[in-house]
Amino acid sequence: MTRARNRAPRAGLRGWGGVTGMAVACAVTAAVTLLPLTHGAGSPGGDTVGRGATSALSVQADACTDPEASLPPSSAEGPDITKIRKRGKLIAGVDQNSYRWGYRDPETGRLEGFDIDLVRAIAKDVLGDPDAVIFRAIPTSQRIAALEHDRVDVVVRTMTINCKRLEQVSFSTAYFQAGQQVLAPKESDITGYDASLKGKRVCTAEGSTAYEAMERQSYGAVFRDEHDGTARDRDQLTVPNQLDCLVRLQLGEVDAVVTDNALAAGQAAQDPAVELKGDKPFTTEYYGVAAKLGADDLVARINHVLEGYRSGGANSAWMRSYRTWLAEGLPGITAPPAPEYRNN
């Protein structure tokens, strides 16, 4: 299990620059320091540091030790690419609810965001036209089913890569690094996922990674509803959707929100009075483009697209899209996550 640790220095070598290298080093230090807190007696430096979303990793089969590692990039034709070419359109399953990621502007009716830009880049590469896309808005629960039933070719929808999902779908290389973070009003005395949460009311989405994190270590925060899980649950502190937390925060019903920082960036963009607290997220997870299990030519092609998408330093397509959609709420990112490839 040393791959996780090796990853950061390797990324630094790929030309992120000295500053990035320092930042990554800090991140690793912070993650290692936080680990005993978040994972109790878990092995320090174990697999969960670098692959935060997969605490179940150790019980998985040996085949899945590094879920982010994907097929090597290739622009070779295959049955799945041919199918898309014949159709002349890429069918992409996207979100229309996540501000700055995949969101339908009520004014124009158009979908836009960081995920949407990536879909258009894939369409441009495969079909030569960024607009040759049929967007299908799919709810969270339907992401895997939509791929399995060929309703969509790809799912680009803030979807975290993990071992469990790898049994059902194929993932591209990681295109975004996210993690759980605390969101609170700017003037709040909460400083992050730490002792400053003591006695505060913290909102999380039901069944989310954030809720699990609070269960492990709440720092004395109040985060459970009185009648959670029963018919009398009033959905005050644990809510159906992460955006509901911002509603509670604005209404003064909670003091802070713990959520994925990528989604929190969308919340911060909707409310200039709130901000992400703490320097770094306290977990790490990666988003990937999902395709049908076995659509290897398509996955390799998407990895090929992502190579080009990432390249170009500060002027890469990735960075341009980041600056357009995410920099406001999620400042400080200087480069995309480095890709990892399977050896075989």
Partner: peptide, 15 residues
């Protein structure tokens, strides 16, 4: 919120 094009409007409506 909806008038400003913010998805937060939908969350408020659901609340």
């Amino acid at each position: 919120n909806n008038r400003q094009g913010l998805p937060l409007g939908g969350a408020y409506l659901r609340y």
